[in-house]
Simulated scan of single mutants.
Amino acid sequence: MTRASVTIEISKLVPGESPRTGGRDEEHIARLAGLDATLPPILVDRRTLRVIDGMHRLLAAVAKGQRTVEVQFFEGSAEDAFLKAVEANVTHGLPLSLADRRAAAVRIVASHPHLSDRAIARSTGLGAKAVATVRRQSTEASAQVGARVGRDGKLRPLNSAEGRRRAAELLAERPASSLREIARRAGISPATVSDVRRRLTKGESPLPTTNDSSAGEVPPPRERTNVRQMRPTPSDPTAVLAKLVRDPSLRQKEDGRQLLRLLQQNAIGTEEWSELTAVVPAHCGSLVVDLARQCAETWLEFAQELNTRASNAGRVAVAG
């Protein structure tokens, strides 16, 4: 959402710390002063009135004899203000040099160690590999946190073992919580939480052994096999859906009808999915990918919980 700008006297503003190591560019100031168009508002720290972004625009206004300037206020820490200044200078105005961007990355890695390499890369205009190199070489960011926030805003553990241990604790404390809730709190995927719960049920450690094929962040082969065994025959989605729609135990209940509607929306063939991928514009690709993955995780969690309930019912029936 666009912030509202206000008019403020130039004399009240304080020069801020710039990510430009070379100082101000007099030629750029002269070019801005010669423009007739209205320049974008300057970004200013509300508490200190220090300029975060727009020092060249401010000096251009001074050169033109202006007494006031349009500003937008920023509220946050000094570290966040510097991060905002870097982001602003990377995306518009006079570009930062490679040396400036590298220096900024060093500082941001130290002040924001919880941010992922990709998130810092996006803020500084560097590649993720370059940021990873900066992080390895940094002495200030050594092992400060056990997780990082990615570009999508999600918290992910640097060590999956820590996430698994945390999930085991949460499963003991909150046995009624869903896989997704535990996953969100532990910073791991719902599939990994499912694996942790399976291990705990069997009396095993939540951590996989070195030779365990389920050591990754995906469900173990045994669980995936169970999910496949749930699939009705024939596997044609249209035929399966038609069979479910005829089942009165589903279509005569509101919750059942809601489930059928969801299944109808998702039960499309491979060719139809291919046609849908062609519709997604390039600038929306990453957003659709993230959303599709979230939906896939939700359906996987639903399938796993349904499979667990079916297995438990089968064991009860055999015991009876």
Rank of each mutant, 00 (worst) to 15 (best):
T192C: 11
A141T: 08
S194G: 13
T133D: 15
R184Q: 14
R102N: 06
L179V: 04
E181N: 05
S194K: 03
I120N: 09
R156I: 10
D100G: 01
A110K: 01
D100V: 02
S205I: 05
L98K: 07
H114L: 05
A99S: 08
G146Y: 05
K202F: 11
R118L: 12
A119V: 08
P175N: 03
R165F: 12
Q144H: 03
I108H: 08
P157R: 05
P190L: 00
A132T: 12
K129G: 11
V149A: 00
T124D: 08
G150Y: 10
K154N: 11
R151S: 12
V134I: 15
A105N: 07
R184H: 10
R102H: 13
P206N: 01
L158K: 02
A128W: 13
L200P: 12
R166M: 09
V196S: 02
S189E: 14
V106M: 10
H114K: 01
D100N: 06
V134N: 07
A119P: 11
V134E: 14
S116N: 09
G127I: 02
R164S: 06
R180E: 15
V131D: 11
L158M: 07
G146T: 11
P190S: 01
T124M: 04
A128V: 09
A119H: 14
N159H: 07
A167K: 02
V134Y: 12
V106L: 03
A143C: 04
P175Q: 05
D195L: 02
T133H: 05
L170P: 08
S138W: 09
T139F: 11
L126D: 07
G150D: 15
R148V: 15
K129W: 11
V193D: 12
L115M: 12
L158D: 12
A105K: 08
T192P: 07
A167T: 03
R166P: 09
D152N: 05
R156P: 03
V109P: 13
L200H: 06
A143V: 02
A132S: 14
A132F: 13
L200K: 03
A172I: 04
P206A: 00
K154D: 11
L115Y: 13
L170N: 07
A130L: 04
Q144D: 04
R135E: 10
P113L: 01
R101I: 06
L179P: 11
V196M: 03
G163N: 02
S123A: 15
S97I: 05
R198I: 04
S97L: 10
R184E: 15
T139Y: 10
R164T: 12
S160I: 10
S116W: 08
S97V: 03
T124H: 04
A99E: 15
N159P: 01
V109T: 08
K154I: 13
